[in-house]
């Protein structure tokens, strides 16, 4: 599974990355987490609200910091 967190590096985006890492660790699953900060790459997903989460190429949520528990729902 490839999880991408889209965000330009604001505190919210960093918090999102931390929550995603935590969720992956707690579920003990195989996943690579990638932080996408390049605006061109972010725009390629058509996302206008940050932070956003992309799982296996699909935009799952935008404009909201997900809690660790919420991330887990998308991973299972």
């Amino acid at each position: 599974m490839i999880i991408k967190v889209l965000g330009t590096g604001c505190p919210n985006c960093k918090k999102m990355v931390a929550n995603v890492s935590q969720a992956v660790k707690e579920l003990n699953i195989e996943a690579t987490i990638e932080k996408v900060e390049n605006i061109q790459k972010i725009m390629a997903y058509g996302v206008m609200r940050l932070p956003a989460i992309v799982i296996d190429g699909q935009v799952k949520t935008m404009g909201r910091v997900l809690s660790c528990e919420e991330v887990k729902k998308y991973l299972l």
Binding site: G7, T8, C10, N12, C13, I39, I42, M43, G46, V47, M48, R49, L50, G63
Partner: peptide
Amino acid sequence: SCSSIPIFIG
């Protein structure tokens, strides 16, 4: 404010 750039581009 952190979404102003993506909105501008979008």
